[in-house]
Simulated assay, not measured.
Amino acid sequence: MSSRQPFVRLNDGHCIPALGFGTYKPIEVPKSKSLEAANLAIGVGYRHIDTAYAYQIEEEIGQAIQSNIKAGIVKREDMFITTKLWCTCFQPELVRPSLEKSLKKLQLEHVDLFIMHYPVPMKAGDNDFPLDEQGKLLLDTVDFCATWEALEKCKDAGLVKSIGVSNFNHRQLERILNKPGLKYKPVCNQVECHVYNNQSKLLDYCKSKDIVLVAFGALGTQRYKEWVDQDSPVLLNDPVLCGVAKKNKRSPALIALRYLVQRGVVPLAQSFYESEMKENLQVFEFQLSPEDMKILDGLNKNFRYLPAQFFADHPEYPFSEEY
């Protein structure tokens, strides 16, 4: 892989670019915007693109990757592409077919990273959010350790280079790590992480197990109405964060990203604007002082913009644990 960005080495020997481009989009944003944003992101220098089956935009991301390869802007080996296994496909026999569907949409022979989207299984079927008559989610009881074994087989088959998880707490990670016959450790745990929820305990735990923490919502999320409480604080308007930004002559967004990078976290930055995408790539051009880092540590309030309350009734709901 060649790119201007530094890399973080994963526990399986592969490398992940130290900043990623997030591609989640809400229902109200047309899919064409995702295609446009992915094209812009690759054009300005992002080589790590994070997507998921559940985002319903894998086709657009695939089009952007292929058009940039055809135009000679990037080579496939320069790109690090992540997608995610959705919770309705946790039955072991559904894992590979789900991945193959994603690969077809992405127009790729393999993805660089394939991760379990949540530790909570839902009933298999045609609906991504299956509901009962009362409008409650139809949850399932598949053991995610059995799902993990199916991910390991996908890696052995060459369909993925690395495998990991998302939204797992430390006890759930521990269950995979202690699983009899474990072949591959998760390379990462992708979780909501930002100055209001700095995940220090989970980060320490992951570092002790050589698991990389990847951060979504690194800038406080895009505040989409369908998922985020509109009364929640706007992270990038935080006066303390803005004060550190002013002192360093950088934007609050760059300070928020740099805070994560300096702690060994791989942030995913999301934007639909080229100027913001370019600016976010400047995160490697400066350093925060130990004093600034301490000030930013003080902003932590273990606050989640995305608490995934729809899973709260499941015994595997990950956020009942402290970390």
Results as ranks from 00 to 15, higher is better:
Ile16Gln: 06
Lys33Cys: 11
Arg9Val: 10
Gly22Ala: 14
Ser34Cys: 15
Cys15Ile: 03
Asp12Cys: 10
Arg47Lys: 06
Leu19Arg: 03
Arg47Thr: 10
Phe21His: 09
Glu36Gly: 01
Ser32Asn: 05
Asp12Val: 15
Leu35Thr: 11
Arg9Phe: 05
Arg47His: 10
Ser32Gln: 12
Ser32Arg: 08
Phe21Asp: 12
Gly20Ile: 08
Pro30Gln: 07
Glu28Leu: 11
Ala41Phe: 06
Glu28Pro: 03
Leu19Val: 14
Ala41Arg: 01
Leu10Arg: 08
Pro30Cys: 05
Leu40Phe: 06
Tyr46Asn: 01
Ser32Leu: 14
Ala38Glu: 02
Arg47Met: 02
Ala18Cys: 14
Arg47Val: 08
Gly20Ala: 08
Pro30Ile: 02
Asn39His: 05
Arg9Ala: 15
Ser32Met: 05
Leu40Lys: 14
Ile16Thr: 11
Val29Gly: 00
Tyr24Ala: 15
Ala38Tyr: 01
Tyr46Pro: 06
Leu40Glu: 07
Gly20Lys: 10
Arg47Trp: 01
Ile16His: 04
Thr23Glu: 09
Tyr24Arg: 04
Arg47Gly: 03
Gly45Val: 14
Ser32Asp: 13
Leu10Asp: 04
Tyr46Arg: 02
Val29Leu: 09
Asn39Met: 07
Ala37Tyr: 02
Ala41Ile: 02
Gly13Asp: 11
His14Thr: 05
Cys15Arg: 08
Pro30Asn: 06
Gly45Lys: 08
Lys25Cys: 08
Val29Lys: 00
Ala18His: 08
Asn39Leu: 11
Gly43Ile: 03
Ala38Val: 15
Pro17Tyr: 09
Pro26Val: 09
Phe21Trp: 14
Ile16Ala: 06
Lys31Trp: 00
Val44Asn: 12
Ser34Gln: 06
Phe21Leu: 11
Tyr46Gly: 00
Arg47Phe: 01
Ile16Lys: 05
Leu35Phe: 13
Ala37Ile: 09
Gly43Gln: 06
Leu40Val: 12
Pro17Ser: 13
Ala41Gln: 03
Ile27Lys: 12
Leu19Glu: 04
Lys25Trp: 04
Arg47Ser: 03
Ala38Lys: 00
Gly45Leu: 10
Gly20Thr: 12
Asn39Phe: 00
Tyr24Leu: 13
Lys33Leu: 07
Leu19Gln: 11
Gly22Thr: 11
Lys25Asp: 01
Ala37Pro: 13
Arg9Glu: 15
Lys25His: 15
Gly22Val: 07
Ile27Pro: 04
Pro17Leu: 12
Asn11Met: 05
Glu28Phe: 12
Pro26Gln: 11
Leu10Pro: 04
Glu36Pro: 02
Ala41Glu: 02
Arg47Ile: 02
Leu19Ala: 06
Gly20Ser: 13
